[in-house]
Write a protein that binds this DNA or RNA. Structure first.
Length: 843
RNA sequence: GCGGACGUGGCGGAAUGGUAGACGCCGGGGACUUAAAAUCCCCUGAUCCUUGAUCGUGUGGGUUCGAGUCCCACCGUCCGCACCA
């Protein structure tokens, strides 16, 4: 080896070109090797890769490269989630076309990704905004329509007045649009829906099998599906055949009922409001109430007594008043509840305000009286009391008994409710997949015949006024009806972009021209062995993708239900902030890392040399200026140092604080390895048993660490082996250790590894080399250090042969001077020996 | 309110119930150099009466020969959901 320093500026690009030319990372559908599909969530082409992408893709890349070396045929693709509103916003703000803007961004970001040397199969690259992709999506949408999983209905939708579009429930956060932050309005529109609720139970049950998914994500999805089992019961109006249906999960508490409450939107309330102005006013007031978490927390329970009465189903002579209440939701259950104040906090608040009866029907043993004091509802387990024939039962038994009674007497039945709603996918937006339907005055809504797909999004549109440009395009929407030929119009809504990302992992695995995917080929790759992405997709994307996979299985296009066998959600990249307080207004003024000279314990502004305040380590954001640009750091330190930093120190699921000192340490280590690799001597002879052991132990442990994504631990082990190897005297063992170290770091620092691989005379590319083999015999030491404790406190250690018999260990321990001093003449009563680990003398 | 995760040096963090603090960063000292950079070596939890000892993993209890790890109670931080009946 000749060069003194490894030069990323020249080496990185050289190896990236070679990998490209040789198509090193192209996945072979016909391979006989075992398969591994490693996937990171594809990015939205916003224009620039950010450091979070770098971390995400580096993790996947290390896994993919290691898997390749370990003999797997690896599919590791990349593409673009390319439809969406930022493109339209850019069009409106800058007068560019969304398509041009998006495609330029893709080109830029692809170049950025290439500079990081990711082992991606670019031959499978796809962008969801191209007809070659979304045309197949339209076909799948029509398939689901034929299977009855797509329907259209008029419904109140969440309307975002700023983005001028409909939002799914999942996209409304605290009553505001997830992207615009605008207060969401309710509007009635004809909308397309996907029947995700048909799979609610299956999606919930499937979570149990996803053992390698983060517990948190599984819990969030389960909560989102929100299954609850209970009773749907009719409370009949006094002197009328009609009644109010309520849903409850606590039928056991029915004898504690003291009122029935209905939602402001409930038909009974709506009807009555037409003749009772006071009620109409009350309903209007309910709708004015805020919906943010804070507002709900403090909102007072308000009710309007309708004067109506209903019969208690378990005791017809018992009449309950009917209120319209602001805390009852129309879109959950039946929009009506019975109030049991003693055992539900909301009902109790309500009852105290309107002075309704509160009687205890569940007791924990001590208090069994009917009277109920205080303002805290009792919701814990207990026995039923004051409930006639239910008295003495457990809650569970009483629930079953009441449901049985309801079924027998015909006033109710067991019911399961879900929080999950069907997925509204219509968007009044231009930059999305056209929904392949045609509206004919004669034939109604007619699907576009598959032979006419794709329905291509026209590119000659303008954005000078808000709203959907497809609506005002002069020709696009005018077509003949596929059924009768009469003049008709196209559907101008486009699909929610979450549809695009609900099946892209299938298209990566198989991309024939004439259909969305070939099930046989897909089957060879799927499910994805390891999926990696941000926790922000815990509900939306991951639930929708699970649903689409099930829906496609339901119509016979797939034979598996779960797309992602294993999921990993990585932490964010964070950075400390630099600021000064503006004396004019007391507000902080932030400075970017590039403007600051960071010393060991302080930081100063480069411009004036005066100190700046070092703030907390927080998520990178433009407003706090604590961002670093991937291109800048790659240019400064090289791709390998950046990749190494992404893997070091922090466990991958936690946040990673970016620091100048840290990346410099990584860059130093790259050079340190380079020097060590330069010392490789193929002709060296002699054995170094201790180094051999360390090497095999490191290979073994590092492989496990990488497989479990414990990159920080693998990195620590590599540092250790490096240090030991550096200190070792020249020998065949040392040369082997150097070669092994090179292979171990190859997935993490691929450019350095390729360059050094050539230097040590390696054959071909190190990317194609085999992972070093482990000799199990060398994983165990022949000498061990044993801890000697007296009464559980460490007093001495000794190095003995592995497997030394108990008695000898004990004798050696007693011979220790330090041990004798600690014993201080006391007799040893008991000796605990853990073989090869420790001995504890109990005096 | 419900659910989840987490509390270990100055910092990021290691540690199948068995030697707490691996590894990295920061910091200190030294070597090399005319000098700097680079590199290499040593030290680096706290305290003290410093051949050594005592204390130490959020707090208080418990189980155990032995607890960062297990159990109970509390405190704190972060995240998700939320008038879901």
């Amino acid at each position: 080896m000749t060069t003194e320093r490894f030069d990323p500026a020249t080496a990185d690009g050289r190896w990236q070109r070679i990998w490209d030319e040789q198509q090193t990372f192209k996945a072979d559908d016909a391979s006989a090797k075992p398969r591994s599909y490693v996937l990171e969530m594809f990015p939205y082409p916003s224009g620039r890769i950010h450091i979070g992408h770098v971390r995400n893709y580096t993790m996947g890349d290390v896994l993919a490269r290691a898997k390749r070396m370990q003999g797997f045929e690896v599919l590791h693709p990349m593409g673009w989630d390319a439809f969406g509103m930022p493109a339209e916003n850019a069009a409106m703000e800058k007068g560019v076309h969304p398509g041009g803007w998006t495609r330029d961004n893709i080109a830029n970001m692809k170049a950025q990704l290439k500079r990081l040397g990711f082992a991606l199969d670019w031959s499978r690259e796809l962008a969801t905004c191209e007809p070659e992709y979304y045309g197949h999506e339209q076909a799948l949408f029509l398939d689901l329509y034929e299977a009855g999983l797509v329907y259209r209905k008029e419904s109140a939708v969440n309307w975002d007045p700023v983005d001028m579009t409909v939002l799914a429930n999942e996209q409304v956060i605290d009553g505001r649009g997830w992207r615009s932050g605008a207060l969401v309005e309710k509007r009635k529109l004809n909308q397309w829906f996907l029947k995700i609720t048909q799979f609610a139970d299956d999606l919930l049950d499937g979570l149990d099998g996803l053992e390698t998914w983060p517990e948190k994500v599984r819990t969030m999805q389960a909560n989102w599906i929100g299954k609850s089992q209970g009773l749907r019961a009719t409370f009949s109006f006094v002197d009328s055949a009609d009644g109010i249906e309520v849903f409850t999960t606590r039928p056991d508490t029915m004898f504690g009922a003291s009122f029935v409450a209905i939602a402001a939107d409930h038909p009974v309330a709506q009807q009555m409001a037409q003749t009772v102005p006071e009620l109409a006013e009350f309903i209007a007031e309910c709708k004015r109430g805020g919906t943010t978490a804070a507002e709900l927390e403090t909102a007072e329970k308000l009710g309007f007594n309708t004067g109506l009465s209903v019969e208690h189903p378990l005791k017809k002579s018992w009449h309950l008043p009917v209120y319209v209440a602001n805390f009852v939701l129309m879109d959950y259950g039946t929009g009506a509840v019975f109030g049991c104040p003693a055992h539900d906090q909301r009902d109790l608040d309500f009852a105290r305000k309107y002075e309704l009866p509160v009687s205890r029907v569940v007791a924990d043993g001590d208090e069994t009286g009917e009277a109920f004091d205080g303002d805290e509802a009792y919701t814990a387990p207990g026995r039923i009391v004051n409930s006639e024939w239910l008295d003495g039962m457990t809650i569970t038994d009483a629930k079953a008994a009441v449901i049985a009674k309801a079924v027998h007497d015909g006033w109710g039945e067991a019911e399961t409710q879900y929080r999950l709603r069907d997925w509204g996918v219509s968007r009044q937006r231009y930059w999305g997949t056209p929904i392949p339907f045609i509206h004919c005055e004669v034939c109604g809504v007619v699907p576009v015949p598959k032979k006419d797909l794709p329905v291509v999004l026209p590119e000659d549109v303008t954005f000078d006024v808000p709203g959907n440009p497809l609506l005002r395009h002069p020709t696009w929407k005018h077509v003949g009806c596929p059924k009768c030929g009469a003049p008709a119009t196209r559907e101008t809504d486009t699909l929610d972009t979450f549809v695009d990302s609900s099946w892209y992992f299938l298209r990566f695995a198989s991309q024939p021209g004439d259909k969305p995917f070939d099930p046989q080929v897909v089957k060879q790759w799927l499910p994805v062995e390891q999926y990696i992405g941000g926790i922000e997709h815990a509900i939306l994307h991951l639930l929708y993708a699970r649903f689409w996979t099930r829906a496609l299985a339901h119509i016979g296009k797939l034979d598996f239900a779960e797309p992602f066998a294993s999921l990993f959600t990585q932490g964010m990249v964070t950075h400390e902030t630099y600021s000064r307080t503006d004396p004019a207004n007391g507000q902080p003024v932030y400075f970017s890392p590039a403007e600051v000279d960071r010393g060991g314990e302080s930081a100063a502004l480069i411009a004036d040399g005066a100190p700046v305040e070092i703030g907390r380590v927080i998520k990178m954001s433009k407003s706090k200026k604590n961002v670093v640009d991937p291109d800048d750091i790659i240019a400064q330190y090289g791709a390998d140092a950046v990749r190494w930093f992404m893997l070091s120190d922090s466990p991958p699921e936690r946040d990673l604080p970016w620091s100048e000192a840290g990346i410099e340490g990584c860059a130093r280590f790259v050079q340190r390895l380079w020097r060590l690799f330069g010392q490789y001597d193929a002709a060296a002879t002699g054995e170094d048993k201790a180094l051999d052991r360390k090497m095999h132990q490191t290979v073994h442990a590092a492989a496990q660490d990488i497989a479990s994504l414990g990159f920080n631990k693998a990195v620590a082990r590599i540092y250790e082996l490096t240090a030991v190897t550096e200190k070792a005297a020249p020998s065949a063992s040392r040369s082997a250790a150097i070669r092994t170290l090179l292979l171990l770091v190859a997935p993490m620092m691929p450019h350095l590894a390729e360059e050094a691989w050539t230097g040590i005379g390696g054959e071909g590319l190190v990317s194609d080399a085999a992972w070093p083999a482990v000799d199990p015999a060398l994983l165990v030491e022949d000498e061990v250090t044993i801890a000697i404790q007296v009464l559980g406190k460490l007093r001495d250690t000794m190095t003995v042969a592995k497997g030394l018999p108990k008695e000898e260990v004990e004798a050696l321990a007693l011979a220790s001077e330090k041990v004798q001093r600690a014993l201080d003449g006391k007799a040893v009563k008991k000796v605990i020996v853990v073989p090869d680990r420790l001995v504890n003398l109990v005096a």
